[in-house]
Simulated scan of single mutants.
Amino acid sequence: MPATSHPTRAAVAWRWVALVLALSQLAAPAVTSALAGDFLASGATNRALITPAGYAFGLWGVITVLSAVTAVVIVRYGLGSWWETGILIDICIVFVGFSLWLVIAAQSWLWVSVVVFGVMVGALAHVMRKLIRHRDDLTCPSWAATLATVTFGLYLGWSSIAWFANVAAAFLDEGWSAEGWWWQFVVLVLASVSAIGVTLMLRGTLGYVAGVLWALVAIAVGAAQRGSPVLVSTAAVAAVVVAVVAAVTWQRLGRRARISPATA
């Protein structure tokens, strides 16, 4: 682990901003529901065949709580890398995006919702790439780095699949058929291919894989509830492939770790 360095004023300031915004995520769903009602239950997203089963959205609660806990840890310990300020800004963008997305979705501005979610996913992907591929730069305790990696990996895994569900909702709002399985099959395949690619990029990190598998299994359950066996099979196969790719990646990384000390 690199030697501990003193954080810049900018890094300290952004840590506190991230904490405030993380706490705001906890209140955002309740505030939006009080003002707009249960808009997700009756909106276009809920009509799509590839909408995850209702229970799956409870993961948002886990993500927002983990985000708050992680933000507290970052305020206390920091991350300690020279690039910390950059990813703290990305994290703040994600937290603002979550609350903004709820407001936009409540107004049924679905293509705007797609854009906001896309920005969130892009920011999360950048955060995760830094945390995974440049972990040796971190000077915080290893458990704090692991917590951040799991939290934002879970956030990215769920959000990246949810982005495709938002795209489907936007198409439905444009008049595409909710019973048209073929175009939703294409959307689901694109989501699956993206998930496999990011799994490889992030070296099968557990948080991301868990978020993706949760989403794909929930899509399979939701498609079964809506009577679409093709989409059930597609989501199930995608989940298996992601799990296998992650397992193979873990095996290869473990083998490299065993070989490296022997050749050092």
Rank of each mutant, 00 (worst) to 15 (best):
H6E: 15
A10C: 02
A11V: 08
A13P: 01
R15V: 08
L19E: 11
A22N: 09
L23N: 04
S24K: 02
A27R: 10
T32G: 00
A36R: 12
D38S: 10
D38P: 02
S42W: 02
A44P: 06
T45H: 09
R47T: 13
R47L: 06
R47Q: 11
A48V: 11
A56D: 06
V72L: 15
I74P: 03
I74D: 03
V75M: 09
W82L: 14
W82C: 05
G86C: 05
C92K: 07
V96C: 11
I104W: 00
S113R: 04
V115Q: 02
G118W: 06
M120I: 15
K130Q: 15
R133K: 14
R133V: 10
D137I: 11
D137P: 06
L147P: 01
T149K: 08
G153E: 15
Y155A: 08
G157C: 12
W158P: 05
S159C: 13
I161A: 06
A162C: 09
F164C: 10
V167Q: 08
A169T: 09
A169G: 14
D173Q: 13
E174P: 00
S177Q: 03
A178G: 06
F185V: 04
V187P: 01
V193A: 10
M201E: 10
L206R: 11
Y208H: 13
V212Y: 08
A215Y: 12
A218N: 07
S228Y: 02
V232C: 00
A238N: 11
A239K: 01
V240H: 01
A243G: 14
A246D: 01
V248I: 15
W250C: 02
R252A: 09
R252N: 11
A262P: 04
A264T: 14
A264G: 15
